[in-house]
Design a protein around this nucleic acid. Structure first.
Length: 685
RNA sequence: GCCGACGUAGCUCAGGGGUAGAGCAGCUGAUUCGUAAUCAGCUGGUCGGCGGUUCAAAUCCGCCCGUCGGCUCCA
């Protein structure tokens, strides 16, 4: 199972390479201060493949500046100044950096314990630093400044905006060169350029940023993925041998009240698109701003006040609304009219109205869970019905900030292979294991490398009690300890607002991390929506809910697939699987006849047919081969006079070149069926 | 959202105050060819949008939109 084990950060930190990069950061800072006096320093750590340094300066570093800085670094390196470590008291350090005008360094000193503070000097340059470094700056030769970007002091967007310069540094010239070549190669696998070159998808500017459109070839791949996932869910062969999933399909918009009940309106607000009809808008039926009643203010009061699902809030008109949006006494489960009417009605001004003020009467769904809980609640459920596994290819919409969109990997509209599993408290450990195995099976089908992370509660942004969270986190941790002990990461505070999760993380060609599969354990939404089942004791109980997506989203997974395979998809996904190349027009009829035969071949029980085309352009064979290879068509069939006469074919494979052992359509069909059936995932050597 | 860069034909890009360029793609014609680009002709652009400066703006300035690299956020 190619789960990438937790990297031993310690190994890297102890390496000479790490010191080279750390020292390079110092050298760069020295060069920057030499060239641009008055530039103040922030942090400058080594990172994967290099280092950066953050500078506090009104100057905007340009590309030309980078060359000048690099030049200066080389000049300084020639002096081979010794790196000298110098312990310093907190008071002296504070004075030193204050005198130097290094405001941020001084601020950082404040956070350090006295007695453990050191400076590092090289030549005239001094920096607050724990080290270690290389012996002298003369050892720093193989570096290159890569790019400049913005950054915030301490990563806080409310603090100083800094200028960050990224560099790379290596121990040898060859390693540097190899790294730069690797970056160039990786750029060729960028799914955004391949998406264009292979006509897979488009982001029409008129439609809006982050809204992906699938072109025919992309749509074929999307549908193949959907067919596969449908099959895996319906035949129950992975993870849950006892019982299959039940498919659902739910609307894309839900009443604002539903999002109030689920807590999204509080905790997921920044990412939601709200909608309304023009009729409602023009007739003033939207929630209006009212002065907050009973001390119900904005923001902070909300955060704390409404993080708790339990309590009820009195309305001004005397009725009671639970924070689940249901009028007390009404246990029908229908979200009450509170959200909509409270704002428009006379005299209301309580929590719900305030929260809905001026926003649409409907919300475009950013998640599928509320819809799924609503369907779980249709009819009554007994313990015999559990686990209930409800799944949907659910399309969701999230308002992502403009700067974070990234091709197919971060979009505003995407479809999740989403499911919500309703289980008893006894069932959830085994259930999580089943899902975990399902995720591994899917990722392993493509041979992805991935790592696994447990993401725990963020107290600032979550609903539910401490006990319930502790229980949920413990449940997930136990599964990880069983399935991949010592190999998983723990990321504190990165949970969903309703529960902790296990995420599967895949890297793109340039090494950026993206969350794919996710398994989330949730004791809170069943409570909020009052989902229940009848136990063997005849009493009502609360089910536990698992949110999970295996691919994550089709869009992101598609993007990652493109990068993983450099656009040369496994045969079963390839939009054009076979292209027939007649050498001259005389073989065109034969080529078309072959295409006809192939197009009717079933390659699996799912009625799939081979996707085949004929290149009928009046080009020479060399050009046709080139076109076929450029479009990464897995198999090219060449037919000339000899083949037409003997009824044979000559086959060229994208990965393996000419296949001399295949001379007939039957032989090729056999190979294709096998390759498709086993979902063979070849990579270019 | 923030910092910076960029936006010229379907694609990749050159040009940089004085009549808009190339290659590929597309179309037409010729060629009928054996493993990564056959030849010729033609078509194609309000130079992302709006405003400003100027006798004159693709070019300079401002705002907006979009993209790219990061930051912050985040599945």
């Amino acid at each position: 199972m190619p789960i990438i084990a937790k990297k031993h950060a310690e190994d890297y930190k102890d390496s000479r390479l790490y010191r080279v990069r750390h020292s390079s950061a110092h050298l760069m800072a020295e060069a920057v201060q030499a060239l641009f006096p008055g530039t103040r320093l922030a942090f400058g750590p080594p990172i994967e493949d290099g280092f950066y340094y953050d500078f506090d300066t009104p100057r905007k570093f340009s590309e030309e500046d980078l060359s000048a800085i690099e030049e200066k670094m080389r000049e300084l390196s020639k002096k081979a100044a010794q790196f000298v470590c110098e312990p310093i008291s907190k008071a002296d350090a504070l004075k030193l950096f204050s005198d130097l005008g290094e405001k941020l360094k001084a601020e950082h000193v404040e956070t350090l314990p006295d007695g453990a503070i050191t400076l590092y000097r090289d030549g005239d340059f001094v920096d607050l630093c724990a080290g270690p470094h290389v012996d002298n700056t003369g050892e720093l030769k193989h570096f290159k400044l890569m790019h400049v970007s913005g950054a915030y002091w301490r990563g806080d967007e409310k603090r100083e905006q800094l200028q960050r310069i990224y560099g790379t540094a290596w121990e040898s010239k060859d390693e540097l060169k190899a790294y730069l070549t690797r970056i160039e190669e990786a750029k060729k696998r960028d799914h955004r350029s391949l998406g264009k070159e292979l006509s897979l998808f488009e982001f029409p500017e008129l439609a809006g940023p982050g809204l992906p459109f699938y072109l025919p070839k992309g749509a074929i791949i999307l549908q193949e993925l959907k067919n596969w996932m449908w099959q895996l869910h319906m035949d129950g062969s992975y993870g849950h041998p006892d019982k299959v999933y039940d498919p659902l399909s739910t609307p894309h918009i839900l009443k604002t009240d539903a999002w109030h009940t689920s807590g999204h309106l509080k905790n997921y607000r920044d990412n939601m698109f709200m909608v309304y009809s023009l009729d409602e808008f023009e007739s003033g039926m939207l929630g209006h701003h009212k002065p907050a009643a009973q001390g119900h203010g904005h923001s902070h009061a909300h955060h704390t006040g409404c993080a708790d699902p339990g309590p009820v809030a009195p309305l001004a008109d005397g009725s009671i609304i639970s924070s689940a949006g249901v009028t007390a006494g009404d246990s029908s489960g229908e979200a009450g009219p509170a959200g909509r009417n409270a704002g428009a009605g006379a005299g209301n001004g309580a929590a719900v109205a305030d929260e809905n003020e001026g926003i649409g009467n409907y919300g475009l769904k950013p998640m599928n869970c509320p819809g799924h809980v609503m369907l779980y609640k249709v009819g009554t459920k007994s313990y015999r019905d559990l686990p209930a596994r409800l799944f949907e290819f659910g399309t969701v919409y999230r308002y992502e900030r403009a700067g974070v969109l990234h091709g197919m990997l971060r979009v505003r509209s995407f479809t999740q292979d989403d499911a919500h599993l309703f289980v008893t408290p006894e069932q959830y450990p085994a259930e999580i294991e089943g899902v975990f195995d399902f995720c591994c099976h899917v990722l392993d089908t493509f041979g992805f490398d991935y790592h696994v992370a447990l993401k725990t509660r963020n107290p600032e942004k979550s609903i539910g009690s401490d006990e319930v969270w502790a229980m949920a986190e413990d449940g997930l941790r136990k599964v990880l300890e069983k399935r991949c002990p010592g190999k998983y990461y723990v990321e504190e505070g990165d949970a969903a607002f309703y529960g902790p999760k296990i995420d599967f993380i895949i890297k793109d060609s340039l090494g950026r991390s993206w969350q794919g599969s996710t398994i989330q354990l949730d004791f809170n939404l069943p409570e909020r929506f009052e989902a229940e089942y009848t136990g063997s004791d005849g009493d009502k109980h609360r089910p536990v809910m698992l949110h999970r997506a295996i691919l994550g989203s089709f869009e992101r997974f598609f993007g990652l697939l493109i990068e993983e395979f450099g656009g040369a998809f496994p045969l079963w996904l390839a939009p054009e699987q076979v292209r027939i190349l007649p050498i001259t027009d005389l073989q065109l009829p034969y080529a078309q006849q072959l295409a006809q035969q192939m197009a009717h071949m079933r390659y699996n029980t799912n009625n799939g047919v081979v996707r085949v085309c004929v290149d009928d352009s009046s080009e020479k064979l060399g050009k046709k081969i080139r076109e076929g290879k450029t479009q990464k068509v897995p198999y090219l069939i060449v037919v000339g006079a000899a083949e037409a006469e003997q009824g044979t074919i000559t086959v060229e494979s994208y990965h393996e070149g000419k296949l001399s052992d295949i001379t007939t359509l039957d032989q090729l069909a056999h190979r294709l069926r096998d390759e498709i059936h086993h979902k063979v995932a070849r990579r270019k050597a």
